[in-house]
């Protein structure tokens, strides 16, 4: 198998990896903010339920959660929805990733929101701003600046975690490399796959560095 053939096969797997990554970010960020509101609400029952949920999701392996999302609906309703659907496996993986990462993001958001001083809320209040206006115009912009470093950490971890999706047979780049290994007895495509991750994360690191510098126009 030539280098170009291997590259082609890996690239098709890498496409799935990228899609999983991008869609997870897209859904998990807003969901994380919503979960964050739930875990900080003054309404106690909701707060306890949300915090328990976050505890379970953060306290169990993502691989296990992939299995749960993929198999449990089928067991409950006696029809394996994700296995029969065309992109079922990918969707199941996406759901598991979104839930898992939203919980991690929610804690990062919570830390960021709680780090904003009470004075900012009070200043907005005496200027007649509503709660929503205060959050979106005063609090959130400052939160974003503060959470960039922990967020970039988590997002880089997500790039690598997408490789877990292959436990429910989502054909990502590692899955593609493994297939070559078992069919052609070639080891090097696996290491080559690692280079894809490395480059991708290198680009992300540069991107986050850029955003961080962009937001450095003010200090607190």
């Amino acid at each position: 198998m030539s280098f170009i053939e291997v590259t082609k096969q890996l690239l098709s797997g890498f496409g799935t990896t990228c899609l999983l990554f991008i869609l997870t970010i897209l859904f998990a960020l807003p969901l994380g903010l919503i979960i964050c509101f739930g875990s900080t609400t003054r309404f106690k029952p909701l707060r306890y339920v949300t915090r328990a949920f976050v505890w379970i999701i953060r306290g169990t392996p993502l691989m296990l959660q992939l299995f749960v999302v993929f198999y449990v609906p089928g067991m409950l309703f006696d029809s394996p929805i994700f296995a029969t659907l065309e992109n079922g496996r990918f969707i199941a993986a996406l759901i598991a990733f979104v839930i898992n990462y939203a919980c991690y993001f929610s804690e990062i958001f919570r830390g960021g929101i709680e780090s904003i001083s009470k004075g900012q809320y009070e200043a907005a209040a005496v200027l007649g701003m509503s709660k929503g206006q205060t959050f979106f115009h005063v609090v959130l912009p400052q939160v974003i600046k503060r959470i960039i470093p922990p967020m970039s950490n988590e997002i880089i971890t997500l790039v690598k975690d997408t490789s877990l999706a292959r436990v429910i047979s989502v054909i990502d780049i590692i899955f593609a490399a493994e297939t070559i290994l078992s069919l052609k007895a070639l080891m090097w495509p696996l290491f080559y796959a690692g280079a894809f991750y490395l480059v991708f994360n290198g680009v992300l690191t540069l991107l986050f560095g850029y955003v961080e510098r962009k937001l450095n126009y003010y200090k607190v």
Partner: peptide, 23 residues
């Protein structure tokens, strides 16, 4: 909330620690 905001606007407050919006 709305009523409260209207009432607050009768008063202005300058804080000891300024509390400007840093961003």
């Amino acid at each position: 909330d709305k009523q409260l905001r209207r009432k607050r606007l009768h008063f202005g407050l300058v804080f000891q620690s300024f509390n400007l919006f840093p961003h």
